[in-house]
Amino acid sequence: MKLHLTAVFLCVAAWIACLSATSGPTSSCCLMVTDTRVHPKNIVDYKLQTSGLCPVQAVVLQTRKGKVICSEPEKEWVKRAMQKVDKEKARRKKAATCKLTKKMKTLIAVFLCLAALLLFTGLGQATGPVASCCLKTTKTRVNVTLLSRYYMQKSGMCPVEAVVFTTMKGITICSSPTSLWAKKAMAHLNAKGRTYPTTAITTPGPTTEDLPLTQNSTDKAV
């Protein structure tokens, strides 16, 4: 008799172990369905209970207050409640997706800005600052003692050949290399060692075109 009871006990234990290994921990089951009815707006979640491990087939509804209602799947109000829960879950999922998409767009925009900044920084380090060019020459003349330096602009990267003078006040004068005044001014500055042999890489200052100067042969104080 004792041997028989031991065998039954072992069989039951093995069956429970098999259920735990294959299906995981068993959830609570509705043993029966009820006629309890609530408004669908008070239902926050549900799950379908099949009649495999549980005794009946049912829809397990969860209310806002945490109560559980076991209802028949074919009830119309139960179907409406499930549809309401499904719509809310879809809406929350869509909102979460949109929020994630906005974050991704923001991160992408920040990344592109950083990449552009690094690119331009690299270009600046590789090529140096951009040279300012005289687009045309003028006949403006000033007293050569008011000039601080000059450099020769070649017609490679710039549109014209010119002598670019800078006055004591930082004003730029673009003159023709063949101008007698330009030659005189260069000779004056050469004597003082204030010259650059070729096109200089500079930060452009104001030019004579920005000032109300008349173009004539008399000397002007700039």
Rank of each mutant, 00 (worst) to 15 (best):
M1C: 07
M1H: 09
K2Q: 06
L5S: 14
T6C: 14
A7F: 10
V8M: 14
F9A: 15
C11Y: 06
A14V: 09
W15P: 02
I16Y: 12
C18I: 11
C18P: 00
A21S: 13
S23A: 07
G24F: 08
T26Q: 14
S27V: 14
S27H: 14
C29M: 04
C29N: 01
C29V: 05
M32A: 11
M32V: 04
D35R: 12
T36Y: 03
H39L: 04
H39E: 08
P40C: 09
K41E: 08
I43H: 01
K47L: 07
T50M: 09
G52P: 02
P55W: 04
P55M: 04
Q57S: 15
V59Y: 00
V59F: 00
V60A: 00
G66H: 00
S71N: 13
S71T: 11
P73T: 00
K79I: 09
A81P: 00
Q83H: 13
K84W: 11
V85N: 00
V85S: 00
D86V: 01
K87F: 12
R92E: 15
R92I: 11
R92S: 13
T97G: 04
C98V: 13
K99T: 06
K103N: 03
M104T: 06
M104V: 10
I108G: 01
I108T: 08
V110H: 03
V110G: 07
C113G: 10
A116W: 03
T121Y: 05
G122M: 07
Q125V: 15
A126Y: 12
A126I: 08
V130R: 15
V130E: 14
V130T: 15
S132Q: 08
L135R: 09
T137C: 01
K139V: 07
R141A: 11
V144D: 04
V144L: 10
S148L: 09
S148D: 08
R149L: 07
Y150G: 09
M152R: 10
E161Q: 14
E161C: 02
E161G: 05
M168R: 15
M168E: 12
I171F: 04
C174P: 04
S175Y: 06
T178G: 07
T178M: 11
S179I: 06
W181D: 01
A182C: 12
K183D: 11
K184H: 12
A185F: 02
H188K: 08
L189H: 05
L189G: 04
L189S: 04
A191H: 09
A191T: 06
K192T: 06
R194L: 07
T198G: 11
G205F: 02
G205C: 06
P206V: 03
P206K: 05
E209M: 11
L211H: 07
P212L: 05
P212T: 01
S217N: 15
D219N: 12
D219W: 13
A221G: 12
A221S: 15
V222A: 03
V222P: 03
V222S: 03
